[in-house]
Structures are given as structure tokens and as C-alpha cells.
Design a protein around this nucleic acid. Sequence first.
RNA 1: GGUCCUGUAGCUCAACCGGAUAGAGCAACUGCCUUCUAAGCAGUAGGUUUCAGGUUCGAGUCCUGACAGGAUCACCA
Length: 596
Amino acid sequence: MNIQESIIQGIQLAFQNSYNHDLPLDQIVLAPTRKEFQGTYTFVVFPFLKISQANPDTTAKQIGEYLKENVAVVADFNVVKGFLNLVLNEKVWLDLFSQIYSNPDLGQLPANGQKVMVEYSSPNTNKPLHLGHLRNNFLGFSVAEILSANGYEVIKANLVNDRGIHICKSMVAYQHFGNGETPESSGLKGDHLAGKYYVLFDQEYKKQIKELVSAGQTEEEAKKNAPIILEAQDMLRKWEANDEAVVSLWKQMNAWVYAGFEATYTKMGVSFDKYYYESDTYLLGKDIVEEGLAKGVFFKKENGSVWVDLTSEGLDEKLVRRGDGTSVYITQDLGTADLKYKDFQIDKSVYVVGNEQDYHFEVLFKIMRKLGRSYGDGLYHLSYGMVDLPTGKMKSREGTVVDADDLMQEMVETAEHHTKELGKIEGFTEEQASELYEILGMGALKYFLLKVDPKKRMLFNPKESIEFQGYTGPFVQYSHARIAAILRKADQIGVAYQNPDFSGISELAESETALIFLLSNFEKKISLAAEELSPAVIAQYLFDLAKEYNRFYADLPIFHEKDLAVQAFRVALSALTAKTIKKGMSLLGILVPERM
RNA sequence: GGUCCUGUAGCUCAACCGGAUAGAGCAACUGCCUUCUAAGCAGUAGGUUUCAGGUUCGAGUCCUGACAGGAUCACCA
């Protein structure tokens, strides 16, 4: 039985004993004691005054007395204004520590037999990835790791939007202005090359609109009639008709883009188990429309269009098939949801997609539930906020984006600059040094994007570069490197910290118990992060842990400690902290260095 | 206009789902490297939690209504 459970049970007994009242266990809640008071757990007695028929202080004291006498783990208590603060005895801390320390599966919960798919990244193939995609990719990868640590079998999926009017725009512009340029001939990454022509398309399009307007057309007419947009639309029709020349150009440009994406994904440190392509899935879902009609979930209007009526659930009517029988966006998403299930028999499915599609997913999930899908209740939209610049929203067509490749490169360079300035790479080979810059630069970037609650939109100011001090990735990484140095020395001088005997330790410092307490919360935080689909929970926890460790490090001697049992304990405590940091950071997709 | 999200220190963010005197980091200021990594530690200062009501022992958190910002509401994707 763990500590909390035994205290809660003790409180239940206290109520029986003192007030002859049966209090259900789930009504007894312990909170961590605030730092300024003595104790570890706090029991708030206000809700129970009707039961005790006494004032808060008296009630708290009565329960405290009972616990102190009858519950082994409770050493002492104090009462402050109706808050019962419980102090645990020293042996509990050491036992708790030993228990975690000897667990070979630190941070890994047992398999729960459930399969979950995490779909993330999902790029368009007409342009390179930008800052917003970084948030998406880091979130998706991290959430997949977190779910895996919670015992799920996880399938990471990437649904590539490789078809449609947007890629046709790049293709048309390439035909006009490309002059046979290739990534090889120009030295441009394939995704950047496609993006270049997407921008060129837009410039030409705007130019043509202007011309038509000055020739007397309205803005609206001009937008419809500009020759280049007509060309793009024509190309899309040809693509759908499987026109050989168009398909061949499409394949070539997409191949370039994929090579570029691959390089970016490698640098990001993300990966996928399954790729879906919209060119394969965009016709799916038509059978589901028929199924929905047969089941009465959908209905048909006079012109033949098919709709779902969600007004009873506070939403609107939503089109699922056009009057001419063709699909709309949501049609293929219905089909793809089924496809994912057919492929993997998943229990849950997480879609990492920006919050501009909140409504779309609400509708999609409601439909799947109405259709009675077994996985309907396991559908989640991990909706995240946009990353804004001080100048406002990023617009790829207008070139006001922070490019993902550029930003990652800058971060690594900044890390190099910082490290050299601090003179911390003595004895490093060149490879080791550049590996370190990579770890630190990417760590800073990932941590920066993941420490914020996903659903909040966030501001990125390129002028104020991402920090390396304080609440940052490098701070946590630094704490790890610091401990690694301790462990190297411990190995060197032969401290027995692997299977230590702590029986001789009679007293623990406050910073030691605080550290053990934090370490004991790791699994709870992993569960919470999974429940909320929020890597920010882990990021926050790791900062607290690293902070607490640094306090311990500054407060207490390790190798200068004369009592060898205490020394071994402190080394072991350091080792467990390092292990927890390493595992926790891996859940964020961040590596930690041995030296920095 | 309807719906959804957000609003907390100068800035970026927390607050364990209703608990104590609302906490961190950055920026500012003050200490600490002839003991294990100072990318660190300790401290000072900084708040009417956008506003107005309500619910109760107790509200940043729940309810109502304003205000501000964002997203969305296409036979677009």
C-alpha cells in the first residue's frame, strides 16, 4: 500500500473512531503541503465540520492525534487554520526512495492492452514546414511517447496532403517559370523549391488580377478569371482524370518535397510508423454516406445533397456530400477514420491539428458516434493554438513565416555560441562538440514550444532569441550533466551507490525529502500528461525536479560528506534524479548530455 | 450576428479540477565560485487574477452579464 492510501484509510478510521461516521474513501483528498508550512500532505477539514460538530482547529487536531498514534507513516502533525499538515517519518522516505530506485521500469507503466493512433505533422506538399509545424510535430511526437509510457501501443501516423489545388498551383508556376530547375541544379531543398513556386504562383496571380481589374472587371470576377488560376483548376481536373503528363510532374515535384521533409523530420527527431496519402484516401467515405443515409443519420435535400443535422446538439446542419455526388473535405475524413481502424483495430485515435479546425472535428466525431463506431468514444482532437509572431499571423504566401529548417539551424548555432562563450567544451572532440550543440539547440527549441499548455496560442519573438537559462530545456539538461559528473566521480572513487544500504541513516535534510517526494510523483505526472494530452505537464515537472535538485546540490555536500552511508545515499539520490530527468526529457523528444 | 477558445507581475507562463499569504522564469537590483559544472544557488522588488454581479465556510478556478483578443460558422481544403 502506498503512503497516500494508508493515510486516507487512516483518516477514514479516524472519522469512524471519533465521530462514528463512515466516510467514503473517494471523499478524502490529500493535497501536497505548501512549501512555507511543515509537512508533506495536507488534509483540509472544512468540508467535514458538519460531521465532526466541532470547529476546524479542534477537528483537525482530533484527526491529527489519531493519525499520529495509529498510522505508522505519520510522524507528526500541525494545524494551521483548519489545515491539517502531516509530517511523515524518516524511514518512510528511505523506503519510498529504495522502492523507486530499484524499479527497472522507471517511467514506464505496464501495458494496458490498448492501441492508440496519433496522427500529426500532416503537411501540405506545396511548401516547406514552418514554425507552426514545429509545434505540431513536437507535440505529436511527445504525446505519442507519453501515451506509450502509459502502456498504450502507439502508432504514429502522418496523413500527407499531397493533392489538390495547392500543389497544382506550385506545378503550374513551375511549368511557367521553372526552366527545368531541380534540387540538384539549384542546391535548393526540394520542399523549399516547391514553396518557391507556390509563392511565384501567388505573385503572378495577384498581378493578373490587377490587370483584369484595370481592364474593367470587378475584383471578384478577376479572381475567378485570371488565366493562371484557370490553369491550376484545369490541372487539378487533369490530375483527377489521371492525365499522364500532369501525374508525372506531380510525382516528380512530390518526390523532391518528400526528400526535403525527410531531412527536416530527421533534424526534428520525429518519426512515423504509417504514412497515409490523401491521393489514396480522398475518394473514401462515399460508402459511409450511403450507410448514414440507410441508418437515418444523414438526410437528403431536394437537390440530392446529403446532410447531417446536428442542431439538437447545438451545432448546425453540415454538408457531407454535394448535390452532384462529389465529396467534400469531411467525407474523406469519415472514410479515413474507418481506414485507420481497419488497418490497426485502434481503440483510440488522437488528431494533432490546429484549433482552427475545432468545429470540423467536433462534427466529425459526432458523426462517427452517431454511426455507432466502436472507436467513437476514443476520438480526440489535440487542438493547439497558433504560434504568432509579434507582427501577427504567419502567412506562407506572403513570405512572413519563420521557416522550420532556418529556425532549427539558428538554435543550434546559438547553442554553439553560448557554449563557446562559457568555455565549456574543453576536451571535446569536434564531433562531440557539434553533437552537444545539436542536443542543446534542439532541446531549447522543443522545450520552449512544449512547456506551454497546447491549447493556448503563443507568441514567438524571433528578435528575443530563445533562452538558455531559467525555465528552459538547457536548464534541465544542465542539471543532468551536473549529475553525470557526480556519477563519474563516484564510479572513479568507488562509491557503492548501486545497491546501497540506508539503514544507518537517521536523519534527512529538507531538500532531500523534498527531492524524494518529487521523484515519487513521476508516474502520476506521466498519467496526468496522458490524460490531458499535454507535454507541458512533463516540462513543468522536470523543471521543478531540476530546480529542487540544484537546491539540494547547493545545500549539501556529497563527496565531502564524512558519513559514507549518507554519501552513498546522496549519490544514489542524484543517480535517480538523473534517470528521471533523462526519461522525462525523452517523453518530450529531448536528449540530455553527459557533459556540457 | 451564432458557437468555441483565451484573458493572471513590465514580458513569457504556472496554480495538483473549489482550499492557506496566487507561484516560477525573463528583465531590474543584492549577495554566493582557493568544496563535487555559476547554463547554478540564495535574496529584494514587482498583483484589485480584464470588469460587474452571484453561488458558499472559502472563488483565479463554478454560474450570469459585460469588455478585449483569437478561431470558426462555404455544395473550399
